[in-house]
Each structure stands twice: as structure tokens, then as C-alpha cells.
Design a protein around this nucleic acid. Sequence first.
RNA 1: GUGGCUGUAGCUCAACUGGUUAGAGCACCGGACUGUGGCUCCGGGGGUUGGGGGUUCAAGUCCCCUCAGUCACCCCA
Length: 453
Amino acid sequence: MSAGALPGFRDFYPETFAQRSWLFDHWREAARGFGFVEYDGPPLEPLDLYTRKSGDEIVGQLYNFTDKGGREISLRPEMTPTVARMVAARANALRKPVRWFSMPQLFRYERQQKGRLREHFQLNVDIFGEADVAADAELLAVACTVMRRVGLGPDDVKARVSDRRLLAAVLHGLGIAEAATPAVFAAVDKIGRDDDAALVKRMRDAGVEAEVAGRVLDTVRASDFDALARDFAGNADVEAALARFAEYRALLDAHGVLEYLQLDLGIVRGLAYYTGIVFELFDARGEFRAICGGGRYDNLLKALGGVDMPALGFGMGDVVLGELIVSRLAPGETPPWASANAPDIWLAAPEGEPLAGTIRAARALRECGLRVEYPLRPMSSSKQRKAAWSSAARYLLEPEGASADRQYRVKAVAERATPQGQGLAQQFEGRTATIEEIVAAWRTGVGGATDRP
RNA sequence: GUGGCUGUAGCUCAACUGGUUAGAGCACCGGACUGUGGCUCCGGGGGUUGGGGGUUCAAGUCCCCUCAGUCACCCCA
């Protein structure tokens, strides 16, 4: 216990690493499919990169310290300031719109709880330099495509989407003063966490009448697109926001991800810097924290780097998503990454012979891309068979005949014996083969190379 | 930073009201057997009962502190 990792940090044993690696592959391929390109920045940044954006109170959440040169620094808690700096530095030279993604490991200093550690990996996808709503749709489409790729459909995950401009227009339409808007936003953000009395009090303290506060709660809870259009007919700001949202929906339909969408004016996202459409992805049963959150933050680059460029992006953490994926596996179902670490071939070594011949055979197999394991010390054939089974290799090759004319019997290891996976074993069923024959058969695709994750 | 709950082998758990040398299954390692098969049988390594202190003739068990895990609050990138 005492020799474990630091609190909130994880050891990735090979089984766990396989899951992480599987998830990363899907993240990367989903983002690339939309033409996004990968970047990275330093895991350590000057402390003031974060205090400038979020104020000094953020330091309580940061994994910060003083380095040996006396610099105040922090492990990065988020990627946005870093990418904003990088984009701002080359703002004029970059082809627009900038579509970048990254998979940084992020850190924060706080007590861990369900779905939150002190360290996690996060897919960050951002678009810079595009104000059109098509960029908003593209962004959410990437997030939903990741969901689809990892096996989570619209019945498993919902994208709760709002638009801060729509909410602001609605609040204005309800007669709420400009000065009270931030407090009402804060109250709306707390819906579902605080009870109604506390929410109403929060708004009344900002000068909102109790009756209006009640209407705010009703309107947000309903989050009914058609009702908004009806109730606020003639309100130019609301109509403009609704029109934009209608186009957003049409584009998401074209992306094939409309089923994930759920209008929810209660999605505010605490950060002050969001300016437009914002969204969070949740599991449909409401068992977990948000899987993903993001939106449009058109003013942030100007505030941080002085470059005025519209921007939007999201972050998707590996912890909650991983927990959700595991929880959705059927009892006894093997996860998709289960066989990622298994060798293709367990190559049995003949008893009483030097290992060199086996190594040469293994080399021939490896040169065509196979993962090959064999015993590093003399072992009985029954022992080797057991080892092959427990390695979960796809095939077991057992030597027969004299070393001068070495033949192998090809056996499929049962658990992984998919119809494709048995190809080699079927090919050589009832007879033995030389390594050359096996290599040749593999090269023609008989072995089932496609089922490797 | 605050509060609740929980800490026994790698994992899941047992051990009467405080009483002998803290046990079992799985996993791991070794051996036997089977020689188209993951079986079965035998054996083995593994624990400062999270750590420290206290009460007691005697503590895994009771008390205090601490550390860790977990859940919630705060906060959310």
C-alpha cells in the first residue's frame, strides 16, 4: 500500500495500458477523420499562464511549485492557454481555419473522487479562426463520432447543448436586467444541484423578482425549442439565436449525429469565457460525471494573446469515458482491447535442441510483422502448450520431425479462434508445414491479420 | 481545504465476546499426469493484518493519531 503511486496517480499495468492505448487510437483516428492535426506543448508552464486567465484563486487547484531556478511553475491543468499561446504566436502564418487536436496529460491538485484524479488524459479538439456555426457543428460531430467509435450510441450518451446567446436573449426577454445576468447564469448552472429555494434566493439577491426567477427555472427546465419560438415570437435576439440553432441542428443531422443532441439551457459551463454554443456529453443514465465539455470562446485569444480570433473547442477526459465504457460491457464480455497484448504466435521449441533454430524460425515470422513468443529456457512440450494457452496467442506452432527438416503443426488457440483467426490452422489442418510455408501463407492474408486491434 | 464510510496475501473474502503459529478460493511459481490440449492431482513462494502509539496477561479485533482508498462538499479546465 505504502509503496503505491502518489495519491490520484495511476500505474498503467499492461491490461490497463491496453485500454488506454485503444482509447487513444480512437481519439486520434476520429479527429484525423475530420482533418484535425495533432500538436503538443510542454507539460510544465509558468504559473501566471493560468492565473492571468483564471485569477489567483485557481492556484488552489493547481499542481504548482517553485523550480530550482526560482520560477513559479505549474503542471498544466488544461490545454487551452497553451494552445492559445501557440496559435497566437503564429496567428498570421497559420492556414485558417486552424483545426488542431492534442491528447495531453493534465494535472490538478485536489482530492480525488469518482471520475476525478490528480492526473488524466484529455482529448482536446479546437478550431480557430472560424465564426460560422458550421464550425460548432463540426466540433460536436467529432465528439459524437468518438462516442460512436467506442461503441456508445445515442441511447448511451446524450449531448446536452445550449447557446449562451440564446439564454441571454431569453433572460433579457423575461425582463431581467443586464446587471443581474451573471448571477442568473450562475443560478441556472446550479439547477439540479441546489434546490429551488436556494436558486430563487440566488436570483432575488441579484435583484430578480421571485415570479421572474420561477419563470427562469421553468423555461430552462423545459428547454423546449418550439415553445421558445412561440413564447418569444417577435423578440429579434431570441429569434436570431433560434435560427442559428436550427441551422446547427440541420448540420448535425447531415453529420449523422443529431440523435445525440438534446437542447438543455441548463448547460452554462462555469467558465466565464464561453460566448456561444456550449455543450456537455453525459451518459444517458446519469450515473457519471460529464464525459466531455466544450463550446465557443470567441474572446479568449484576444484576452490572452491580443490576437482577435474566433475559437471553439472541447476537452474529453479518459477517466469518466473509460469507466462508462467498462460499465456498458455485458457480463462476461471481453473488452475490445483484451487481446491487444497477446502475441500472434507461440512458437514451441523442440526439447533437447539448442534454441538457435527456434530463434531463426521466430525471426522469419517476425520479419513479416508477426508477434512471436517462445520459451527462453528448456521446457517440456506440455508445459509449452500451457504457456501458449495462457499467453492467449492466436496460434501455437509445435515442432515435429528432425531439426534438419523442421516441420511445424499449426494449432489455433481456442478462445481467439474467430473464423478469420483460424485461417492458418485451417490452411494446414491435418499436416505439418515448414516456417517458409507458414510465412508464405501469412503473407497472402490467410492468418487473419485484419482482426488485430 | 471540510465531512462521511472503509483498510487482513496480487484479487475476492474468512478468523466467536480480545485468546494457540492469521486461513481459503482465484492468480503466480515448481512438479506429476494427459501427449489435439485451457483438465486433474501434488507441492511451493508469498502478510510487520496500511503505519505509529495506547489499554490489556494477551490486540487483526478496543481507543487515539496518522497515511491511503472511496463518496460527497468546494471547484470545474
